[in-house]
Design a protein around this nucleic acid. Structure first.
Lengths: 112, 112
DNA sequence: CAGGTAAGTTTTGTTTTGGAACTATGGCAA
DNA sequence: TTGCCATAGTTCCAAAACAAAACTTACCTG
């Protein structure tokens, strides 16, 4: 079974994951909530490849979670901004953040 | 960059995703919250392959999110149950569920 | 014309995944 | 004591996804 098939699943968690349930998509959205909006900003911030980023942005725009807006023509350049539907993912990002803060502390070189 | 490298990321969202940020893991956890606990139950419920399920369960146990408990020896059989750390993912699952309910309604064959 | 920027696309080789078959251990029952 | 069933995986192979790096397009600057 392909994960995109989950979009019609009976379970709303599964349907949500059919859009954002991969390795990088939620990281892009995190960046959006942090105020980033451009291709190269996402690249620098997240560490994913251009290839994958382009694909994920396309999916997110298709899903109505991001909107692609030209902020300059000649040369044409784009911003990716959260739609209202995208904004509504904020609580999900926050619960994931809280869990990570509590349960995935950053190991640091402690003592010798 | 590999996604498992995210476990040491400065961002707690990224660290969380290094454990649960793939196509299937959160679906396994959903099943756990629904009361399922056995290999073949997960298979039937989620539609993922045995191959992937085995791999994900291993990761989840390693991450301390699930615990593998023998419920029978001779023949030895296992239950996978949420640890406390795993239980704490409930709010995340709920926010994803809520978003899906609102923003990913199931299309049904409407009208003729 | 050379170099720089932004937003991608293409190419190539490696990993992960999907799907199906196979293995291991033991119960049960004919 | 052989055959069938159940649970919990593992193995194999082909297909898809991914990583890394180079290339492309469109324009601007010097």
């Amino acid at each position: 079974m392909k994960w995109t098939d989950l979009s019609e699943n009976w379970c709303p968690v599964a349907r949500t994951l059919s859009v954002v349930g991969d390795r990088w998509t939620l990281l892009i959205l995190r960046d959006c909530f942090l105020g980033l909006s451009r291709f190269d900003q996402f690249i620098e911030s997240s560490g994913m490849t251009r290839h994958i980023l382009a694909e994920r942005l396309r999916r997110l725009v298709e899903a109505g979670i991001l909107e692609r807006k030209a902020y300059s023509k000649a040369p044409v350049r784009y911003d990716y901004v959260l739609t209202e539907r995208g904004q509504e993912l904020a609580p999900a990002l926050m619960t994931l953040r809280d869990w990570g803060k509590k349960n995935m502390p950053v190991r640091r070189a402690t003592s010798g």
